[in-house]
Design a protein around this nucleic acid. Structure first.
Lengths: 193, 193
DNA sequence: CAAGTTTGGCTAACGCTATTAGCTTTAAGC
DNA sequence: GCTTAAAGCTAATAGCGTTAGCCAAACTTG
């Protein structure tokens, strides 16, 4: 039996690709092994368990998403950067729904967890965009969490077809970006109507 | 053997309670049966499959969340209604993280699906709040999707402990509500900074 | 109230999944 | 070239969802 030349990265990559095709919850050790031309137990020479594989997929997705944002906003600032960031994030999730859904509900085990580092990268990319807005120093964390919530929510709802997105999802997303821009510009807390 | 007096509703309720305690993905037919004092195969007299049980939990959660919002905003309008809605939604998800996570990635099979009806209830409750803002007629759907994305994103991220919510999540949430209020008030699309 | 029928529980069994144990062969190091 | 660790394999176990078929409990109907 010639060797397949696998390692942790190739197994995770194959599982991530499979997740995008058939859905994250449908990924099994057997299917991943089949795709790699190998028997199921052989995978355990490279990854500890199915849960660990899921953790790896989540880390990969978070890293890729952060890089996509970073690339998209490079050279831009202000509203242009916000627009590019939102679209890059959304496009990534729509392109890789399976691996992205691995990130929902996957807790980082500690500060040295690669998933935590990938999360930091994403935070940093969003933070760079938000720095173009006049946000008070103490409110930056709140703005970060809010924008991340908005993007994450839209992406997961659209990926899961949460509503009947009757074809004008693009228009809705443009409106969402306008909404975020308005929310970020006039930063005056406690402004009751 | 005396009968347990089960039906579809009691089984779904037990499973939902279990999901809140041990997490949605940890719910098994065996554990639900054990909680109900019954053997596993007996559950199949009331529900068709584990997938159907998940669908039922999702429907229950969506209905309860919609009702929670409806109750919270009754008698309020404008920014007060927005505030009450956001907090009611967030509180519900934090109180019932297990059953809520059943709603993520659960597609409605058709227009007559109870889950679709529950979704309509939720949409209606949010819509009632948004009607207090001067939103152009054609943009109402976009606003609905945007607000729903924001709430869903924050709730799921906090439930999954997506960031290190070092204790000031409450403050972040207040900031998020301000953000949403600003985004909804000055509705002038295409307003580039 | 008695007989029949439906309903809801049970045990037994099957297939699929993740996972472990232990063997064998490959490839790499000295 | 020999040693050795890594990477594949087969075989086996345990736990899951699910189905089949039995049997008693409760409802129906005269």
């Amino acid at each position: 039996m010639p060797r397949a030349g696998l390692n942790q990265a190739t197994v995770v990559a194959a599982a991530a690709a499979l997740a995008d095709e058939i859905g994250y919850s449908a990924v099994t050790m057997g299917l991943v092994a089949e795709r790699l031309g190998v028997r199921t137990p052989s995978l355990y020479k490279h990854i500890g368990s199915l849960a660990e594989l899921g953790h790896g997929i989540a880390t990969l997705a978070m890293t890729e998403a952060a890089d996509a944002i970073r690339d998209a906003v490079s050279g831009l600032s202000g509203r242009d950067a916000l627009d590019a960031m939102c679209r890059a994030y959304r496009d990534y999730v729509l392109k890789h729904p399976g691996r992205y859904s691995a990130t929902t509900g996957e807790p980082a085990t500690g500060p040295d967890d690669p998933l935590a580092l990938a999360g930091e990268r994403a935070i940093g990319a969003i933070s760079a965009v938000l720095r173009g807005y006049r946000i008070p120093a103490g409110e930056m964390d709140h703005a970060l969490r809010t924008v991340r919530s908005l993007l994450h929510g839209f992406a997961t709802l659209q990926a899961a077809n949460g509503f009947q997105w009757d074809a004008d999802a693009e228009e809705s997303f443009t409106w969402l970006i306008d909404f975020a821009h308005r929310g970020l510009t006039s930063t005056s807390p406690g402004s009751r109507s």
